[in-house]
């Protein structure tokens, strides 16, 4: 009962702050609203008994990635006047494309109501221990492969940054 009410309140707040990301006219405020949205999404994870995912979402997205976003925006020091004006056709086009994508999403999620939870009533699925055991036994191959992907992406980024510096010199 309480969970239902909380889900509705959190859902409303999440959508509200997500809308503010798009609607606020200052880039820094948009980023801050995005951070708040991540916190609300973590709240949803906790309601779904995924505590580990909730805290990792805060550490990685709210705590690291968004700080970098904010860092870059602050260094660029954009102001509302300095932003390039986009033409009306561009705005119209992006509204149409965004709306179409929204329809596709709704169509894809329509069937999700019929899915059954694997073991409903269990509130220990998202605990660190269970998640770790599943990741390192059943899903060990995809887990390791994705870690190699991350490493190669990181090495690639470092290489690109290095090469740029060489050209400047």
């Amino acid at each position: 009962m309480i969970t239902d009410i909380l889900t509705w309140i959190l859902g409303g707040l999440t959508i509200g702050s997500a809308l503010m990301v798009v609607l606020s006219n200052h880039p820094i405020r948009s980023v801050l609203f995005l951070v708040i949205t991540f916190f609300f999404i973590s709240g949803h994870y906790i309601l779904l008994n995924a505590q580990f995912l909730a805290i990792v979402n805060i550490i990685v997205y709210a705590g690291a990635i968004m700080v970098l976003f904010l860092f870059v925006l602050m260094l660029l020091n954009l102001s509302a006047e300095g932003l390039p004006k986009s033409s009306r056709y561009l705005t119209l086009g992006s509204v149409i494309i965004g709306g179409l994508f929204f329809i596709v999403l709704i169509a894809a999620l329509k069937d999700s109501l019929h899915f059954e939870a694997l073991n409903p009533g269990s509130n220990s699925v998202g605990l660190v221990q269970n998640l770790g055991k599943t990741l390192f036994s059943k899903y060990i191959v995809p887990f390791e492969v994705s870690s190699i992907l991350f490493i190669s992406a990181m090495v690639g980024a470092v290489m690109l940054a290095k090469r740029e510096k060489h050209i400047v010199e």
Binding site: V35, F52, I55, A62, G63, V67
Partner: peptide
């Protein structure tokens, strides 16, 4: 049960006030 991660979460968010 993720106690220490909670502290790291708080630490990583701590920079926002200053920023």
């Amino acid at each position: 049960d993720f106690g220490i991660l909670f502290i790291f979460g708080a630490l990583s968010v701590g920079v926002y006030g200053i920023m």
